[in-house]
Design a protein around this nucleic acid. Structure first.
Lengths: 332, 332
DNA sequence: TTGTATGCGTTATCAC
DNA sequence: GTGATAACGCATACAA
């Protein structure tokens, strides 16, 4: 067994042809005589030859790979998005390479993005928007297609597919108000997206004439425990809260558990709204009303935008709002 | 603004030096005269030069990258592992590239592994063991260091760091028996690892003299809803069950919710044990007794093993059992 | 249908 | 301390 992996040369030698023919067998089998084809394929198997993507990528100036940057791998929040992204890309012969950054870790962000650019991916998909100026300029200079997702900003680096966090905050405020809740609250993470939602929720609630609209910020990650603590703190402060919006289903489940622990009837005494429509939302007791975000669609569109730009096809609409909708269940 | 990204040549030209000197400035700044250093660095910034990792990897025959293959991104189950793996690798200048396979999707597995091998990573870390023969032989032929994790098999492809699922099943059986439970059950996923645990649990329970030891298999993914359904089915079948082992915390939380929904007191009438010690386990009401697995440690060791082998350092122990321990809380 | 020559961007080697 | 040269593995252009 050889020390180094086999190359086209090795295969060519064994099959008694030139390297060029081997390359053709792999990339354009139609242009090779049937018997040559067979002989070469046999040699490929015999040597366990696997093409070197670095060499091929260098030659073709295309890595056939798209890089994605996630703020976290925790929770099923981004699972749909990543899975559909991976699936869509694979169908077109691209691989997905995932990098992980921390939420709001500006320093790491730039470093990580530079590392991705080094690999010369055909596109970069970001969950969340680019926060640091350094990362932004590095991305622009790289001329690699970039899709920011999950957020809807005014000034995308390149392309964008997401939904409006402000609209979500307003929608939920409208919903709770329509259900007659006049003392409302929100339990939310403290990253930029979550803040935008929370502020919109409070603003709209007040505009609608709420008697109180409180906000409880919890630090990342948004866990069940944070939801419990958040609701406990809110109730201690104001026992008259009758509707609470939690900016993730995990927080909502925590709030639900805390409410039940304190003997509150959900939804009779307290209505709870989550966000994300994760699988457990429908299985909670009572089932959680929540904001559904179509991660699968975001992933598909992000893949399409990326590949279109990478292949020089025109992109009709580089900014896509996929929206959201409220799934009303038994917790409200 | 140029169409193509800048190369060492461009930088060299601008700085009035040779390409070689630019390369040295980036990789061995100590060997360059201070003023040259400054001039070159200035040129690098001016052009926004980012080295091409494909070219460098090709030349050096090292990608400075480790690939990881995960069965799923869902849930925090593997989060610790991946995060610590990424962190450990980054500290040593390696990047982590993540690929995602489905549970038990043998066909996909081989395809995905071949795709990874094409990139010539310095190591491959697998969560779970290699199931298909094709993938196995491709890995062996590639001569890339491989670490299988999360599982403890007899015949690793190369290196292995994990824990014994059989030992876990037995431990939990012992624990429930010691607490006086004679009618026990397990709610579990149906992948190979989960089956091994479940069978061990049943076998040991019977050996200890349990009056009944039932098993409910649920298909992946292991959700809260699956836990609810599982417990409901078990209780309908046998209302005398007093202790149940759930092979993930999500299942356990579902079982807990279902039990409470049916008016059962936990732990008085039903004891519940989870697995994974995910963050919500301690925040459930009552807090969940669970099996804690040290994902962080597994990630660190996997990184160390991979890098050692990649750099030609000796590996004293290619097979590591990191064990587990039972965290006893209020649900038992 | 198949082969030869060349270059992608980088770095090791050796000479200056 | 710096530069010229060659080579990593593959695929394009062109020739046979």
């Amino acid at each position: 067994m050889s020390k180094k992996p086999a190359t086209v040369q090795d295969v060519a030698q064994l099959a008694g042809v030139s390297a060029m023919t081997v390359s053709r067998v792999l990339n354009a089998p139609g242009k090779v005589a049937p018997e040559t084809l067979e002989r070469v394929r046999h040699a490929v198997d015999a040597l366990g030859y696997v093409p070197n993507a670095m060499a091929s990528g260098l030659r073709m100036a295309r890595a056939r790979m798209v890089a994605a940057l996630l703020p976290t791998l925790v929770g099923p929040v981004f699972q749909e998005l990543v899975e559909s992204l991976a699936e869509s890309l694979k169908r077109s012969g691209y691989q997905l390479m995932i990098g992980q950054a921390g939420y709001d870790a500006t320093r790491e962000e730039e470093e990580l993005i530079r590392a991705l650019i080094q690999r010369r991916p055909d596109g970069i998909v970001l969950v969340g928007k680019v926060s640091s100026a350094g990362a932004r300029s590095a991305l622009l200079a790289s001329r690699i297609p970039v899709v920011e997702t999950w957020d809807f900003t005014d000034d995308p680096v390149d392309m964008l597919v997401g939904f409006s966090h402000v609209a979500i905050g307003e929608s939920v405020a409208d919903f709770l108000h329509a259900r007659g809740h006049r003392h409302v609250a929100i339990i939310t993470g403290d990253d930029a997206r979550a803040r935008a939602r929370a502020e919109a929720f409070i603003r709209r609630s007040n505009a609608l004439g709420a008697l109180s609209a409180r906000c409880f910020y919890t630090r990342a990650p948004s866990t069940l425990g944070a939801g419990r603590k958040g609701l406990a703190a809110l109730l201690q402060d104001a026992a008259d809260i009758s509707g609470v919006f939690c900016s993730s289903d995990s927080l909502a489940l925590g709030a639900l558990i805390e409410a039940q622990h304190q003997g509150l009837q959900v939804p009779k005494q307290l209505a709870i709204v989550g966000m994300g429509d994760q699988s457990f939302a429908q299985d909670a007791q009572p089932a959680l009303t929540t904001v559904r975000l179509d991660g699968t669609r975001i992933g598909e569109i992000a893949a399409e935008l990326t590949m279109a730009r990478a292949e020089g096809r025109p992109v009709d609409s580089p900014i896509v709002d996929v929206g959201f909708h409220l799934v009303v269940r038994d917790s409200t």
